[in-house]
Design a protein around this nucleic acid. Structure first.
Lengths: 347, 347
DNA sequence: TTGTACGCGTTATCAA
DNA sequence: TTGATAACGCGTACAA
């Protein structure tokens, strides 16, 4: 009876009407003229049979699936879950579902997923995968397939995107460290194959140069990934030197966590011997010891705005601004301190 | 030319054959008799047109979507991402995709998602949502809808499930603490509306009783959720007492993190004044200071096995065992120590 | 070896 | 106000 395999035809038969009438009753606009009695009969029959419309059949007919695809590099990276939640909830509010794809920073997986998602006729894409080749993006653009970029940009395009100003934010970190009296600031940059990696490094270096400080290569290392492990390995190259910095800015929080581990291993106290700052303000940043000074990126809002932007584009709504730049504020916590303290303790 | 909106009819026209022939070439079993020349022409045409079959149309025809739905309470909880990755990768290996749904422990959201997923005709469900009402599970059972339970069980069913032995593992934690000399062991239990919450508490209490120690209510508090914040609040109720425990077992790692925060606030050193153990071995457990003693749950394997089980059921394969019990080993780290040390330090 | 015919479950359009 | 019809894109039993 309450079998889900009932179709619209079964409901129609049960209600003694034509299938098209059932369709009208169940999804027609409210201004459609339908006899109240008919409507009631249909609703009752649908209820009784536990009728569940087939989204597959509807998608075929409507040529849209009310589904968005979302490409994310790594859901185990705490940066992404809040973004995903924001996107999911905004999409859901507008009647869209999300298919989440974990690309693992593999271009092969990206390509596979892209194909699968398009075969599944998703209506649009949310792309948070920073490694995705610009050429892939260019192709989407060429095919006029709707998409929104998240926390990244692509060469040569006025794409819809939700971003933070990485350069300015990195500059804010440097300003904070310099204000504390630091003069030798080490940088553990992110992969230079990503726009976030490039922009944060550029922003930090510019700010350092602007203040007439050393921005030489001996104070910069590039991590192979935005991960704790990569940050750890990179930091070891920075900390063995005789000319080690008094402060380090990691290109994201995970990298900063890795730096912290390397510092501990090297017998350096944070912040007593070394100040440390990160970027993103992921949840654990406030929980570790010492809590991490970092740039707060409003992740949930990021996902929310991106999904809204995409849905607006899909529904043909007016789009006020193609690029949304979110505020990214500096959060000062225990991991940064003045280098004078270092001297005092060493003395 | 390379327009994705090309259908099988376009390919057929381009290759000078009938659409059904295209279908056969592209997905027919290899033993189908097809002229090599025809096959080549079709493949070439499909290639040239950038043909991408419509998964929607195929699903409608085949009455299956090659899609699994996965219900998860909270993807921001580090316990779940590795499970999701494992499930996703195993599913993908068998040609299935995953639609991920974040239930936020809300039964309303669970119900909505369940409806949406079934409207979308997912072929089966992976259910990691511990709050989902047994009645909902019972209904799936009644309707013979394929599903696998992850890290939970439901009343009255021989459902397919992938589990750890919570009782035994909790017992192992207690054994470790007792071996260290602890006699007053506090328990911060998880919500008693979840099977994991109930089982871990029961297992711990049984182990305590078995050793003739105090398992009274004054040493047990129940957290409202499996979260850091809930653990913190619960621990405060446990630590203000004059009769405070020398060791605490948190029902999961997040709860243990909350206990750690409460202990710090109360001026208690871990492990010097208080030993602390958790459950799950999520990634941050090894990274915090001090690293957390905990039960290692093989999350990735859990997802992997669950997806394999579900796919096997869907494909009508032989299923060796309906319930898979995974090993959950105790990992001893810095957060646990002998209470004698406590005395020494206090003295 | 390939073509024909049909139906999967909907909904938009037209007719009544 | 409702019914009839066609079509969305594909796969398969059957015919040729």
């Amino acid at each position: 009876m309450t079998d889900s395999r009932n179709t619209i035809v079964d409901v129609a038969r049960a209600a003694g009407v034509h299938p098209s009438t059932v369709s009208r009753v169940l999804n027609g606009r409210p201004d459609l003229s339908l006899r109240a009695e008919t409507r009631a009969r249909v609703v009752a029959a649908a209820e009784r049979l536990g009728y569940r419309p087939s989204a597959v059949a509807r998608s075929l007919r409507l040529r849209r699936t009310l589904t968005l695809g979302m490409l994310v590099p790594d859901i185990a990276n705490p940066f992404f879950p809040p973004i995903i939640k924001g996107a999911e909830s905004a999409a859901s509010e507008r009647g869209y579902n999300l298919i989440l794809c974990n690309t693992e920073d593999s271009s092969e997986r990206e390509a596979t997923y892209l194909r699968v998602l398009r075969e599944r006729q998703v209506d649009g894409l949310l792309i948070a995968s920073s490694f995705m080749a610009d050429s892939t993006i260019a192709r989407l653009r060429r095919e006029q397939f709707p998409f929104v970029l998240l926390n990244r940009v692509a060469r040569g395009g006025a794409d819809l995107a939700v971003l933070v100003d990485n350069r300015a934010a990195a500059g804010r970190v440097i300003a904070h460290l310099v204000d504390l009296g630091h003069r030798r600031i080490g940088l553990v940059a992110g992969p230079q194959t990503t726009t976030t990696g490039v922009e944060r490094l550029a922003g930090a270096r510019a700010a350092i140069r602007r203040r007439g400080l050393d921005d030489g290569d001996e104070l910069t290392v590039v991590a192979e990934a935005f991960s704790e492990e990569a940050g750890y390995r990179a930091a070891r190259r920075l900390l063995v030197d005789g000319v080690r910095p008094t402060a380090i800015f990691g290109a994201n929080d995970l990298i900063a966590f890795g730096v912290l581990r390397a510092a501990r291993e090297a017998g350096l106290g944070v912040p007593s011997d070394l100040s440390l700052a990160g970027f993103n303000d992921i949840l654990p940043a406030a929980l570790i010891e010492p809590p991490l000074t970092t740039i707060h990126v409003p992740q949930r809002e990021m996902g929310d705005r991106a999904a809204r932007l995409l849905v607006a584009a899909l529904e043909g709504e007016e789009i006020p601004q193609g690029k949304v730049i979110l505020d990214a504020e500096l959060i000062v916590r225990g991991s940064t301190a003045a280098p004078s303290m270092v001297v005092r303790r060493i003395a």
